[in-house]
């Protein structure tokens, strides 16, 4: 049974997703257009967004498909690009103690960089939020991504530059807002500082995917060491 509290939470999650909608819309359309140009059928392009729901890896996969790469290389690349979700999933786990395995497995499908960022900060801010809030966030993000892919794949060449209109700044702006909402202690400022420095130092050697993973592991470890001093 869905009580009014639950539906209010669900609606709140949907409303909070506004920045993700603004950010995913142009990227989803761009992905559809690109997939179309790479001669993926509209059905296959949409299927990829419905079943994978991970932007960066989908763009890479289309590039690899175009070059005629095999099943194994595409799937392994996808696994590597998306392995950063392990850290996000692990870090979200503390909010899922009261949510059963079935429901958790359902919500886990919707973990992306952006839903992770939004859910982490919003669940920390209001501990009463749970399954329905996350469902609202993840569902809206998922539908935006898949439906805009269909749109882009259908319209194809009729769209000029779907990333204009300033929408390419929707997601960075959301990250800025979430940092401002979350940051309350000196430790947070130190974490921000360390993350910037370490990621810039590693970027030339590791590339962006691994820089994200390794820098996060280093920063969290330094954070724990400082707290236990």
């Amino acid at each position: 049974m869905v009580s009014s509290v639950n539906s209010r939470e669900f609606l709140e999650g949907m409303k909070k997703s506004f920045p993700i909608v603004m950010g995913y819309l142009p990227i989803g359309i761009a992905f559809g257009v690109l997939a179309n140009e790479a001669s993926l059928s509209v059905v296959n392009a949409s299927l990829m967004s419905f079943l994978v729901f991970a932007g960066a890896s989908q763009f890479i996969a289309v590039g690899l498909l175009e070059r005629g790469l095999s099943f194994i290389s595409i799937v392994v690349t996808t696994l590597l690009v998306n392995s950063r979700h392990i850290l996000m999933s692990a870090s979200l786990s503390k909010h899922f103690k009261k949510i059963g395995s079935g429901k958790s497995s359902l919500l886990a499908f919707g973990i992306t960089d952006e839903t992770f960022a939004l859910n982490s900060v919003e669940l920390e801010k209001d501990k009463n939020r749970g399954f329905y809030f996350i469902l609202g966030v993840n569902l809206v993000s998922y539908l935006t991504w898949s439906l805009s892919t269909i749109g882009g794949a259908l319209l194809g060449g009729y769209i000029n530059d779907p990333t204009s209109f300033g929408l390419n700044f929707a997601l960075p702006a959301m990250f800025i807002a979430l940092l401002a909402i979350h940051t309350s202690e000196k430790t947070d400022l130190l974490v921000i500082f360390l993350s910037v420095i370490i990621s810039i130092m590693l970027l030339p050697f590791l590339g962006s995917e691994w820089t994200l993973i390794i820098s996060t592991i280093l920063v969290a470890t330094i954070g724990v060491m400082i707290k236990y001093e």
Partner: peptide, 14 residues
């Protein structure tokens, strides 16, 4: 520590 760190790095990489 992971959320703030990931948020910052995603932003930096933009």
């Amino acid at each position: 520590f992971i959320p703030v760190s990931i948020l910052t790095i995603l932003l930096t990489l933009n």
